[in-house]
Write a protein that binds this DNA or RNA. Sequence first.
DNA 1: TTATAAAAATGACATCAATCATATTTTGAG
DNA 2: CTCAAAATATGATTGATGTCATTTTTATAA
Lengths: 231, 231
Amino acid sequence: MPEKSHKNITCEHCGVRKEGLFSNLTSGEVDDLNCHKVCNSYRKNQAIFLEGSFPRGVYCVNHGKVKVYTIGDEGKEQIIHVAKEGEVIGFRAMFSGDPYKVSATTLEDANICFIGKDDFLSMIDTNTHLRNMIMKELSKELGDRAQFITNLAQKSVRERLAFTLILLQKVYGEEPINLSREDLANFVGTATETLIRLLKEFKDEALIEVHTRKLTILNQDALIRIGGAVK
Amino acid sequence: MPEKSHKNITCEHCGVRKEGLFSNLTSGEVDDLNCHKVCNSYRKNQAIFLEGSFPRGVYCVNHGKVKVYTIGDEGKEQIIHVAKEGEVIGFRAMFSGDPYKVSATTLEDANICFIGKDDFLSMIDTNTHLRNMIMKELSKELGDRAQFITNLAQKSVRERLAFTLILLQKVYGEEPINLSREDLANFVGTATETLIRLLKEFKDEALIEVHTRKLTILNQDALIRIGGAVK
DNA sequence: TTATAAAAATGACATCAATCATATTTTGAG
DNA sequence: CTCAAAATATGATTGATGTCATTTTTATAA
């Protein structure tokens, strides 16, 4: 489905690699990674993998944002995570032996590299550092999800929206947050209409600036006061 | 704080070990584990470890149930997981390098063995099987929490209670579910009063049997129809 | 056993947020 | 550029669930 990328990034020169799972590799390991990876370009809203299917490998986001989500019993998306450049996604299912419990879809045009299951697993077997990074990452995400659960159970929608905006700012960095209202609602865990009303409140209170899809945070401190800090 | 257990279980003869992380160890590894573990007895509602503190090792539940929870911004507990005999808890924080993101407290009198950090980590370094079990466990829990998040975001309290009861039945097995109304509410993610009202509904509909704290499921199929299946 | 505290249960009420309907704006294909 | 479809926005209404107050039951310690 994805097209082979025109610009076939080499891992050695991949600028975003240094933040994620594949940082601190030896140059030999980077070469190894580079040999086994395949670069693919994805269009906006293109599926990367789907809940229920079996993993064939892992995906390293080179450019573009990706939503990771589950589908609830009524068919509604619940976004669990928004992955940014440098993140490796889909590796949890490599260890569980089960099919994917989540789906991943691009939020914008993206470049994403693929590393096959066997190559990835053999890298893990031989590379203690990589293994430790993975365990650390799995543990970190478990902690994040515990806070996500607590927020959903205990905070109001307004509080969760504030929290989510702070979280998304870390994902989008200097750029404005760029998600559809529906995606944002499916991340916060609310109805689209409710989300729109609350966004307007935040706009009227000069906490954010809104240019259709693009949201800029104007008053971070106030949002943290409303939604609580990201742990 | 915990008292040294009178009955100091040996890992070799530990009946509950065969289900969890420490199953499929060689007899040498079991001996090793046995040398390094310390058995402790805990009274009901005794803390095992607390959110924010740094881990000194891992805990293997030999007898008794344990709640794993976070404290929300308003000080309210959100139960994330109820651990049963054979489960190893508190090992995620060993890899992240961060303090615990969750707390753990006994729900009844319990026997819990402790394995120090260094011993545990060196076992992981040398034991591929154990390592794989841990990665699998971390991955499985990530999947569970994704469903937990989706349930909280999309299901009504009634649906979540049904789901939670089915989940707890797997924890308690043949025995009746035995939790305070407050703990149950803090697991479902609702107010205690709401939980009590819904429990009564389920009782009136003959879906459960209630003897003060002890809940028995009478109609599993109906509860699954209401709350959805545990994935 | 009795006293006291804790837990569970119940009622009344307020309100946040979902739903449904409809209008307006933006986007993207041709 | 134009038009249709999609996304965003707004209003009206309802209902589920949280909160507060009070009573009843159960557990626990003296």
